[in-house]
């Protein structure tokens, strides 16, 4: 009887020590789920989800505060991936988020730009070059198409240009067969 108690308590102490040690030694910094969600999000940092960036939205999803259908730039594909990751049901885009748009980049009409730097401050990825009272321009390769620079412009010289199809981004189509009507 006593031996059994000693053995059991000894085991409990030992296992407790192992668990305690590994809790300190193998502590996971941050929430790995947030990083996984963040990896799926398109990183446009546009705020259309009503969170100030992709990371905060990822945190909100991980905390269960936000729905998975609030990211228009991610498209339905993005929702599907999030649903897969989180084991939730696919949800189409809701009422208060904008519909997905074709990917575009901002363009500054350089004849109209007055060099106010407001767009530079708004850009979440520092993709606008310019200085006070100097013309600004967009580094198209870095632009995520978030449209955050459009609203602050006092002279409305920024427009969103859809990306044209080129040989580099052209894709093979899903094979479809034309149906011929029976005469």
């Amino acid at each position: 009887m006593l031996i059994a108690i000693y053995v059991m308590s000894g085991l409990a102490v030992l296992l407790g020590a192992v668990l305690g040690f590994s809790a300190i030694k193998f502590k996971v910094e941050g929430n790995p789920l947030v990083d996984k969600i963040d990896a799926i999000l398109p990183q446009t940092q546009c705020g259309q989800c009503s969170y100030p960036g992709c990371k905060p939205y990822a945190q909100a999803i991980a905390a269960g505060e936000a729905d998975i259908n609030r990211c228009p730039p991610g498209g339905e594909e993005g929702i599907r991936k999030l649903a897969d990751l989180l084991g939730r049901e696919f949800k189409p885009f809701g009422g208060d988020t904008a519909a997905p748009k074709p990917k575009s980049v901002a363009f500054i009409d350089e004849n109209t730009c007055i060099g106010c730097t407001l767009c530079i401050q708004a850009c979440p990825v520092d993709a606008i070059v310019g200085a006070a009272k100097q013309m600004h321009t967009i580094v198209a390769a870095e632009c995520t198409g978030c449209e955050l620079c459009v609203a602050p412009c006092p002279v409305d010289c920024i427009s969103m240009e859809p990306l044209p199809q080129t040989m580099q981004n052209w894709k093979w189509q899903y094979p479809v067969y034309a149906l011929t009507p029976v005469k």
């Binding site: 963040d38 398109p42 940092q45 960036g53 992709c54 981004n169 052209w170 093979w172 094979p175």
Partner: peptide
């Protein structure tokens, strides 16, 4: 197969762009 290959390449391109954007942000 061509369709799948070009979709995968496009996804990889997007991923790269997203990583760049994340870094810059």
């Amino acid at each position: 197969y061509r369709f799948a290959k070009s979709e995968i390449l496009a996804i990889e391109r997007d991923k790269e762009a997203a990583n760049l954007a994340r870094e810059r942000h």
